[in-house]
């Protein structure tokens, strides 16, 4: 089975975010980066399928030069090779344009299975997977926890609300959006890290993807990302800060005598 995993690099989870003066994004130069959480689980699911059924896992990532670091982590964990859409010269936050770019790269590979994470921890759109499925003409399902091969296709366990699940069968090729927590993640081994150095990271330009610059220009999009801001607090919590002992005594007193919860 040939599996493509789409991976996005995002700011590390505990990042201190500072909004830029034009209120359009956060300052990126001071941030540290990591593989998006659910994409890590997508990669894990792909590696497990390959180990069980044979085949190849190809990592696909779009982003500037810095994403190579995350790609290398994937290669060290056992991914065979990687495709990097280097967008040093154009960035777009439009999930439809991003999916168009990813779709162009995926089409050239004709995989049996495409896996994405459920949603990116930065923009949180959760749209790339289903849009890609439409652009690639593939059946899809999302919030996937388990994948197994079944006659001619795959059978997956997907999550519903409130602790319920659903099993769904899909023919291959197909696309799945993977939920965080679906497996235990592996660590790269020293041997894996050594082997990764010889693995290919193929850089793809717009021309390689057969796309023109105006096709990936999000100023032509009918959706405008106007400004970002720190949300106003709706409820005023009483905040305690300072010496832990003093805070704890105050809080315990409030809980007992004001909120009367014990």
């Amino acid at each position: 089975m040939k599996i493509i995993v789409c991976m996005k690099q995002v700011p590390v989870q505990d990042s201190l975010l500072k909004i830029t003066d034009d209120n359009t994004w956060v300052h990126e130069d001071e941030l540290n980066w990591e593989i998006n959480e659910s994409d890590n689980y997508a990669m894990e699911a792909a590696l497990r399928l390959k180990e069980e059924h044979g085949g190849e896992v190809v990592l696909l990532s779009m982003g500037p030069d810095r994403v190579k670091e995350s790609i290398k982590q994937g290669l060290a964990k056992g991914v065979e090779r990687a495709l990097h859409i280097n967008n040093e010269d154009f960035t777009t936050r439009d999930p439809f344009i991003n999916a168009k770019l990813l779709a162009a790269a995926i089409k050239q590979e004709s995989p049996d299975l495409v896996l994405t994470g459920l949603q990116a921890d930065d923009t949180g759109f959760g749209q790339t997977g289903p849009i890609l499925a439409e652009y690639l003409g593939l059946p899809h399902t999302s919030i996937v926890m388990e994948i197994e091969k079944s006659n001619g296709g795959i059978k997956v366990k997907r999550e519903l609300e409130g602790g319920w699940f659903q099993s769904v069968e899909l023919p291959l090729p197909a696309l799945l959006s993977i939920q965080s927590g679906s497996n235990q993640l592996r660590y790269a081994t020293i041997k894996g890290i050594m082997m990764a150095k010889k693995k290919e990271i193929k850089s793809l330009t717009l021309a390689d993807l057969g796309l023109a610059e105006d096709e990936v220009d999000d100023s032509n999009s009918s959706l405008n990302f106007n400004r970002i801001f720190i949300p106003e607090k709706t409820k005023k919590a009483e905040i305690f800060e300072g010496d832990p002992k003093e805070i704890a005594a105050k809080l315990a007193d409030k809980l007992k005598n004001e909120a009367k919860v014990f």
Partner: peptide
């Protein structure tokens, strides 16, 4: 989480929680 909280403690849980355990023991 502070947006929906009634009381909030900004601090390291590994310092605050032991202190809170002691404080609750004291007044319960």
């Amino acid at each position: 989480i502070f947006d929906i909280a009634d009381y909030g403690v900004v601090g390291d849980l590994f310092e605050v929680v032991p202190a809170l355990i002691a404080a609750v023991k004291e007044i319960r």
